[in-house]
Amino acid sequence: MAAGGDHGSPDSYRSPLASRYASPEMCFVFSDRYKFRTWRQLWLWLAEAEQTLGLPITDEQIQEMKSNLENIDFKMAAEEEKRLRHDVMAHVHTFGHCCPKAAGIIHLGATSCYVGDNTDLIILRNALDLLLPKLARVISRLADFAKERASLPTLGFTHFQPAQLTTVGKRCCLWIQDLCMDLQNLKRVRDDLRFRGVKGTTGTQASFLQLFEGDDHKVEQLDKMVTEKAGFKRAFIITGQTYTRKVDIEVLSVLASLGASVHKICTDIRLLANLKEMEEPFEKQQIGSSAMPYKRNPMRSERCCSLARHLMTLVMDPLQTASVQWFERTLDDSANRRICLAEAFLTADTILNTLQNISEGLVVYPKVIERRIRQELPFMATENIIMAMVKAGGSRQDCHEKIRVLSQQAASVVKQEGGDNDLIERIQVDAYFSPIHSQLDHLLDPSSFTGRASQQVQRFLEEEVYPLLKPYESVMKVKAELCL
């Protein structure tokens, strides 16, 4: 049975990233139509530049190519590739079939990587351009969430054990800070992308030097003109047959890092959902379990974690691919890159769409948070109580021993009897502590235990987050809708 299948058929496997999760716009960027249309555009740009620099290419040939950029006979191309065992030459023939007058000058002087690699770089750039505003929107939604809850005390956790208090907004800023680093890295790697350009079979530009009869300047002009037509500021000066596969490492490393950030955020949300302090959106008709109707599973956060793990592992592909590119190139890269580049971007696209949807509907339960604080705060307040007693004339050592005994009794009630923490009640009825009984409410005010959390939130948002989001103001209103 021949390899390949009808990918629109229910009898043929289709990647869930495309069929179930990723956005239509990201799927289109990695589609065959987008790819092969870009090949034709690159052939047109090459012909236009070659004509401008004096090669015998007519206006009629150029116009014929322009008129057929979208006229792609995919069936013919597939048949040609089956016959020739070469995808680029299959599309040269297919393009030439609908451009008979231009057929002889299509791909003039070029090698397969002229269309293959340059198209990949265009796709990487455009895919990054799709991700950047999506990530900015996630940051914006979380920034709104953090600002609104900047002063809401909550129990902090280290080692997932109760620690000092923080605020809900401050905790959210930990998430935002990681995503801001990801946004900066995505922008950097996007701006650092260079075009492969017009380089020939081993990167020496020998074929173009021959076409222009040894004119170095025209060869350099050709490279520059096509690079500018493709919208790049610069091209690699040095290439082998391909652009260095280190570029793929750079791009997928940034995406993998984004995956790590999203995994951490969504894990926190899942843990908070278990504590009943916070939940992701839950639709009115949504079913959490087929057997347990009360369940409210954090399905979206779980999906993000599941896909983020996949995204983090994909960076190993370009690392290994770059390491086995012998001399000017081997074909070890080809099949692998067809999979890992598309999957990385479709996965990143999915987790950003999902995280935006989550961040637009996060639900906080202040009463649950308050109750958990009441359970733990008495123990945390013991040092403040000791200091207040010393100020009232008591002995630190005597007070410490009193607190120690009462704390152990209260802990026994919590752990052995399943009761509430009654340390404060014990202190309130103990005559030894009568000098500070009137101060206990103040000493137990949760806001006095959150330090500068709310001020940190305000400063972080104003100095770091809002300036970073400013270039994306025009796209901030787009909502994230999930079908599944």
Rank of each mutant, 00 (worst) to 15 (best):
K75Q: 10
F232T: 02
W45E: 10
D268T: 07
G214S: 09
Q409K: 12
S112H: 04
C305F: 00
K75G: 11
V390A: 09
A348E: 06
N336M: 07
E417A: 08
R338F: 03
C305I: 05
A291R: 02
S31H: 06
K233F: 10
L130G: 09
G156N: 00
V429F: 15
T204G: 14
N297C: 03
E148R: 11
Y432K: 06
P281K: 03
V226T: 10
K470W: 11
K415C: 07
L275F: 06
D59K: 13
D178L: 01
R40W: 01
T313M: 10
D6F: 11
C304L: 15
Y294P: 03
L341W: 09
R234T: 12
E343I: 06
Q164T: 04
W45N: 13
A273Q: 08
R20V: 01
Q375R: 03
K66D: 10
I106G: 01
L468V: 11
L84K: 10
C27S: 15
V315A: 08
L258E: 05
A103Y: 02
T119L: 08
I139A: 08
A322E: 10
A273V: 05
K295W: 01
F232H: 00
D445G: 09
E360M: 12
D117P: 00
K479L: 04
R190E: 07
K246P: 02
I265H: 08
A143Q: 01
V364M: 08
I72N: 08
E464L: 09
D59P: 10
E463C: 07
L42A: 03
F36C: 15
S31N: 01
M65V: 08
G418S: 06
D422S: 06
P293K: 04
R196T: 00
S207T: 14
E462K: 06
R14E: 15
C98R: 11
V413D: 06
D420E: 05
R452A: 12
G288W: 01
L331G: 03
V262F: 07
V189L: 08
Q205E: 07
Q428T: 12
F195V: 04
C399A: 14
T267V: 08
F236V: 07
S67W: 09
W175L: 01
F30W: 12
Q221R: 12
S19Y: 12
V363Q: 03
P366R: 08
V465D: 02
L258Q: 06
I351G: 02
L255M: 13
R396M: 01
V475K: 15
R20K: 03
N353G: 12
L193Q: 08
T321H: 00
Q241I: 01
A235C: 13
C266S: 10
Q286V: 03
R337Q: 05
M225G: 04
N118M: 01
D223K: 01
D333G: 06
L84D: 13
Q285T: 13
V324Y: 09
K479V: 10
Q325P: 02
N357C: 13
M26C: 04
S19Q: 12
S454L: 09
L443R: 03
M225C: 13
R270T: 01
R337L: 04
T201A: 01
A110I: 04
E376C: 02
L341M: 11
V414N: 07
S447P: 12
L179G: 05
Y472S: 09
C172D: 04
I436Q: 06
V368I: 03
R190H: 11
F449M: 07
Q455V: 10
Q241D: 00
A22W: 08
E481V: 10
T382F: 04
N274T: 11
A480N: 15
K187C: 11
G418V: 05
N126T: 15
P133Y: 15
F157Q: 00
R85V: 13
C304I: 15
R329G: 04
R137H: 10
L271T: 07
D398W: 07
E360C: 05
A308G: 12
G259V: 02
D117V: 00
A77D: 09
E80T: 13
P100Q: 10
G394S: 10
Y34T: 01
V88C: 02
S257I: 08
M292P: 03
P366L: 06
A2M: 15
Q285V: 14
R309C: 13
N185H: 12
V138G: 07
I105H: 12
Q51V: 04
I339C: 12
L183G: 03
I386S: 03
K199M: 00
R171P: 03
K134T: 14
P435Q: 10
M278S: 04
V88T: 09
L130F: 10
A136W: 05
A230F: 05
Y294S: 04
E464N: 06
G104T: 12
K35M: 13
M181A: 08
Y294R: 02
D248W: 05
R171G: 00
D117M: 03
V115M: 05
D59M: 10
Q63G: 12
Q61A: 10
M312C: 11
W326C: 06
L484T: 15
L155D: 04
V414A: 06
E220K: 08
P298S: 08
S112Y: 00
Q320M: 11
A102R: 00
P100W: 09
L128R: 03
K477E: 13
L377M: 07
A143L: 06
F74P: 13
C340S: 14
C340R: 04
A410L: 06
K187V: 09
I386V: 13
F157R: 02
R40Q: 04
M292G: 03
K82V: 15
L174D: 10
T382H: 01
L355S: 14
K246G: 03
H442F: 13
A348P: 04
M225L: 13
K66L: 10
W175Y: 06
C172N: 04
S448A: 14
L468A: 12
E280K: 03
N336A: 13
L275S: 11
Q161F: 00
S23V: 05
C266K: 01
L165W: 00
K229R: 05
T313P: 13
E279V: 01
V189F: 06
E213I: 13
A77R: 01
T347R: 06
